[in-house]
């Protein structure tokens, strides 16, 4: 398989996750807003920080308010994490790899883009936002499900899994970060007691993890347990551990995988070895940040190994 084709399939998967998860991320914030007691200010701009997009945002908007942040996250053409940009990238990548993907994927990608563009106004209005975001998530899941049930399990599929799980792990860490940043802004005894409850509940729900958490943990929602669940539960498909295991599995099925596989396995151990109570309590945001850097390293390893070959002998 040509590196270019593999890379485009990989990015199709990444953007598909990205579109869905950006929608989830905006959803958490919007819902928390509904749940929080009056007078608790919510830092919309955190969503920009979480996506490491401060600079780009600064070039476009002065006011860091809800309206601008939402517009930026849903529709900004230059922000590669915006829902519309992600959907357009999915469409372009599928368009140029049509031979390697099921034919219906192209139609589904077109429909998704059409939905997201034509009903954007609803997403920008607070009142209709939930439905819009829900629609986006559904579109993504439809395409995802289509590929899941129709793609041949060849190298293309493994690259799809690599991209999907890398992006998903990354976005799960950002969802946690979103919660953590919210709690950090309101460190507080003076705050109503249920703030932790509200934030954690919404983080779980936005990752579709509320019920699984309840079933596994069988206890109240506590921030530390929520973090551990979303990081460590090997059986929950959006947990970081599960995503890394999936990447290990996918890489294992690809040619010339030795170095990548070694890196993935080695870092998997490292990532969870570092996770002690101290970290969970005080340095969670630093920990999540370094986790994101580690995931970026995985991407570089994939790219170097399979996509961007430069000289003969450069294997």
């Amino acid at each position: 398989m040509l590196s270019r084709v593999a890379e485009r399939i990989y990015w199709t998967a990444r953007y598909l996750e990205r579109a869905e998860n950006t929608a989830r991320l905006v959803n958490v914030y919007s819902k928390m807003l509904l749940d929080l007691p009056g007078g608790v200010d919510i830092g919309w701009y955190n969503l920009v920080t979480l996506n490491s997009a401060e600079q780009l945002f600064g070039q476009k908007f002065k006011r860091r308010d809800e309206r601008n942040v939402i517009r930026f996250l849903l529709a900004d053409p230059d922000f590669s994490g915006s829902v519309l940009t992600s959907l357009k990238m999915i469409r372009e990548n599928i368009r140029t790899t049509r031979d390697a993907l099921p034919a219906e994927a192209w139609e589904q990608a077109n429909e998704s883009t059409l939905f997201a563009t034509s009903r954007l106004d609803e997403g920008l209005r607070r009142g209709d936002r939930y439905e819009y975001l829900d629609g986006i998530i559904r579109c993504c899941q439809q395409l995802s499900g289509l590929l899941d049930t129709t793609m041949r399990r060849d190298a293309g599929w493994e690259f799809f899994r690599l991209g999907r799980n890398l992006e998903r792990a990354d976005m799960t860490s950002r969802l946690l970060d979103a919660g953590a940043s919210m709690l950090q802004e309101h460190p507080g005894r003076e705050e109503p007691l249920n703030l932790v409850q509200i934030v954690c509940g919404n983080v779980l729900r936005s990752a579709s993890a509320y019920q699984p958490y309840r079933r596994v943990i069988k206890g109240p929602v506590r921030s530390r347990l929520v973090v551990r669940f979303l990081l460590e539960d090997e059986l929950f498909p959006r947990s970081v551990a599960h995503c890394i295991d999936q990447m290990i599995d996918a890489a294992g099925a690809l040619p010339r995988q030795r170095r990548v596989l070694k890196l993935l396995k080695c870092e998997r151990k490292q990532i969870f070895a570092e996770l002690d109570e101290e970290k969970l309590e005080h340095d969670l945001r630093d920990y999540l940040n370094s986790l994101q850097l580690q995931l970026a390293d995985f991407h570089r390893a994939f790219s170097h190994n399979w996509f961007a070959l430069e000289q003969p002998g450069d294997t």
Binding site: P255, E310, Q311
Partner: peptide
């Protein structure tokens, strides 16, 4: 495609050049 220092043409594939 790329041309190596040995003046041969290679294509980039997931199996290498």
């Amino acid at each position: 495609l790329l041309v190596g220092e040995n003046d041969c043409v290679y294509m980039r594939t997931i199996d290498g050049l």
